[in-house]
Design a protein around this nucleic acid. Structure first.
Lengths: 322, 322
DNA sequence: CTGAAAGCGCTTACAG
DNA sequence: CTGAAAGCGCTTACAG
């Protein structure tokens, strides 16, 4: 049996309440008593049992982080900062890769209900009933789940306008758009709208593909896109994986980048893993992660939070445009 | 207040013990009773409280995963499979990126002691006293911490011999080695030994740099390496980040790969993020992750486990060799 | 400043 | 097959 607060109390000749007070650093303990207890803890190598205090306090000090996949540069970087920020507040982060399975997402809601975690950060695709989500402290990235679930997003519309305008400035006339359509309403949809609006404004033809794409299917969609619009001289890719696939496929088809086709993507600069720099709209991943954690913790504590938080992207020029 | 087992018991007119038995699927409950209880649970929207059962059972059903950084392709992929495998056994995975801070590593040991997690998977650099590690269910990758801590590794020595032999077969005469020296004894050290042995066997000169390198410092070490050994026509890089840096720096210096310099690396194929394929020794990341989790769970349950588990790598030829 | 006691929501021998 | 009771290791009014 591990040593408990009771053992420490007996050893130091005080009550268990006093030991608890020392553990929790309450100042209402007489210094002499505190020392006695501290000493006993050291001698007995006592470590307080978290499970017990959690039960008593009714808080787990854990949050769940749900991402579609962790081995993807955007999500990995995001996870890195979520964990770091949560840690600052004394929260642990439970990692869940949904692998696009709705079941794993729903599981998280169960984990909140059964008090395995206090709340969750959702980066995902699926929809969930408002009923299920009721009273669950969840904050999401980009997606809207019901009216009172907070989310953090980036300036999708204006950033995409800027990116498409850039292609036009660089001389592109036939600009394609390739994106992945989310399953629930998401700010990501603003990207396509921005593209269409910009094309309309310049009287340029729309060449868009925007489908539901699961991870791993990018290749096929990219091929279909290029088969359909073989004459493009510019393209906006809504997401890193698509941009990667597109780049590879364009090279395969003998296109030179940026000479024959110029590319801009939403997310594309993950320097640590890739020496190539795409011209891209860079999301403030770190800031988004830290913000989402702060909002979640406020929500867990029952404080009021903003429903919508929009953060600024940065436009980064790289080797995929002239 | 959330509904508890007591509410369910009252509603269905049974004792709380019986409700508990139904929750845990014990077969010793009369079907009629079971139905009554099930119904009550549904009506009252009861969800069992995990914190309580954990305390009572003295198990958290959580493991911690410690990696130096999560936003690195090897660790991210590894994390993906660790989480997936742990989930199969009903365990949640708490993610911790140590960011090379010894403090965060030591913290994990504290988390085990205070029963926040049942055990941990360690992928890391630092050393810890045997005292601290005593009785902690921890399984590591590559590193040896004391004699009774199990670890999973790959066939570092023979795989590196094979890789260096390959460079020799391809005509290299001046083969460099660049690696990161771990802070505690690690199987990774076998790579350098393999390189040196192979060079000796062929009477070729040793041009090795093997330093303690923290993430983010690769660039500098690579530059120093290339300054010192500017005449190499082949190089073995012990790790993905080093290989990436090396590749970039060689290109910067006007070298053509593989025409001027051929490269082989340990880890280098992370297709999902990188269209370039390095010639490399590919570690069985998935298998390593699943194995490490299985061993950890056995250890948590007090079963006997092998101290050393070696898994086979695969040699993959790519565009960095002739 | 501190102790005795109740209670967090479960599980599990024990007895029937 | 099932209930009453003890107990997991803490925290926290309450009373002094």
């Amino acid at each position: 049996m591990a040593t408990t607060i009771k053992d420490v109390a007996d050893y130091s000749g005080v009550g268990i309440g006093t030991v608890s007070r020392v553990i929790n650093g309450e100042k209402s303990v007489k210094p002499a008593t505190r020392e006695k207890v501290r000493n006993a803890m050291k001698v007995l190598q006592f470590t307080p049992n978290d499970m017990a205090s959690r039960l008593r306090r009714n808080e787990t000090r854990c949050i769940a982080l749900l991402v579609p996949v962790i081995n993807h540069p955007f999500f990995a970087k995001f996870a890195y900062y979520v964990e770091d920020e949560a840690d600052k507040f004394g929260y642990s982060t439970i990692l869940v890769s949904s692998q696009q399975r709705v079941q794993k997402e729903t599981d998280i809601i169960g984990r909140i209900h059964r008090r395995e975690v206090d709340g969750a950060v959702f980066v995902t695709h699926f929809s969930h009933s408002e009923e299920e989500l009721k009273d669950c402290p969840i904050v999401s990235i980009d997606r809207h789940f019901g009216d009172d679930m907070p989310f953090v997003t980036s300036d999708n519309y204006s950033a995409t306008c800027r990116a498409v305008e850039y292609l036009i400035e660089r001389g592109c006339k036939d600009i394609g758009y390739i994106g992945s359509k989310p399953l629930v309403f998401s700010e990501v949809m603003e990207r396509e709208r921005a593209y269409r609006d910009t094309m309309a404004k310049h009287n340029l033809p729309v060449k868009a593909v925007n489908e539901i794409i699961l991870h791993g299917e990018e290749q096929k969609v990219v091929r279909d896109f290029l088969d359909k619009y073989s004459d493009i001289d510019g393209v906006f890719a809504s997401g890193y994986s698509l941009a990667q696939s597109l780049y590879g496929e364009l090279i395969n088809r003998g296109k030179r980048i940026p000479d024959d086709v110029q590319m801009v993507s939403y997310d594309g600069s993950f320097g640590q893993w890739n020496n190539r720099n795409f011209t891209c709209v860079e999301q403030p991943v770190e800031q988004m992660a830290r913000e989402v954690v702060k909002i979640l913790i406020k929500k867990i504590k029952g404080e009021d939070v903003e429903i919508r938080t929009e953060l600024k992207t940065e436009f980064v020029t790289g080797m995929t445009t002239k």
